[in-house]
Amino acid sequence: MKRHNVDCAPGCPVEATLDLIDGKWKGVILFHLQGGRLRFGELRRKMPGITQRMLTKQLRALEEDGLVLREVFAEVPPRVEYELSELGESLRPVIDALRRWAEEHRARAGTALAAAAPAETHAGA
């Protein structure tokens, strides 16, 4: 697991947390895994804009940071499932707060949220 320095200036814990969920996809992956274990293909279908390579990269980073657990089943073809670790599960309130904020401020928060997919796209996970 990567070590993030949180023993510094008052803003560093926020910086360290954002570093864990940085980028376009990590938060979305964590959101979808809140609904339970998912196979790689299931995750990919829930995020049609992500490439296979990017999903693999982001899942590896989340696993390295201890937020996601990966289980490989000895089957042909191989089956791989992902789920939130205990540490990843502890981010649930953060991910939920980001979702709620976006839903509440979509109309006022500028083009990034206005152009985002409807809330229903990520609901029910």
Rank of each mutant, 00 (worst) to 15 (best):
M1D: 12
K2L: 15
R3C: 13
R3S: 15
H4S: 09
N5I: 15
V6P: 08
D7K: 09
D7E: 15
C8K: 11
C8E: 15
P10F: 12
G11C: 07
G11E: 14
G11K: 08
G11V: 13
C12K: 09
P13H: 02
V14T: 08
E15G: 06
E15Q: 08
A16D: 07
K24N: 03
W25L: 10
K26I: 01
G27L: 02
V28A: 08
I29P: 01
I29M: 01
I29W: 02
L30H: 03
L30E: 00
F31E: 01
H32K: 01
H32A: 00
H32F: 01
Q34P: 11
G36I: 06
R39T: 04
F40M: 00
G41D: 11
G41M: 03
G41T: 13
R44A: 03
R45E: 01
K46L: 05
K46A: 08
P48R: 09
P48C: 11
T51N: 00
T51H: 01
Q52I: 03
R53L: 15
M54N: 11
M54Y: 05
L55R: 01
T56F: 03
K57L: 07
K57V: 00
Q58W: 00
L59G: 05
L59P: 07
L59K: 06
L59N: 04
A61M: 12
L62R: 11
E63S: 14
E63I: 04
E64G: 03
E64V: 01
G66W: 06
G66M: 10
L67E: 02
L67N: 09
L67F: 05
V68I: 10
R70H: 08
R70Q: 14
E71Y: 03
V72D: 04
V72S: 14
V72K: 04
F73A: 10
F73T: 08
F73K: 13
E75H: 02
P77L: 14
P78E: 12
R79M: 02
R79E: 10
V80I: 15
E81Y: 06
E81K: 03
Y82R: 02
L84C: 14
L84F: 12
S85W: 06
S85D: 02
E86K: 13
E86G: 13
G88Y: 13
S90D: 08
L91Y: 15
R92Q: 10
P93F: 07
I95D: 05
D96H: 12
A97E: 09
A97G: 10
A97N: 10
A97L: 14
L98D: 01
L98E: 05
R99C: 13
A102D: 14
E103I: 14
R106F: 03
A107T: 08
A107K: 08
A109R: 07
G110Q: 09
G110S: 11
L113H: 08
A114M: 11
A115I: 05
A116I: 06
A117G: 05
P118E: 10
A119W: 07
E120P: 02
T121W: 09
T121C: 03
T121N: 03
H122A: 10
H122C: 04
A123T: 04
A123Q: 09
A123P: 04
A125E: 08
A125V: 02
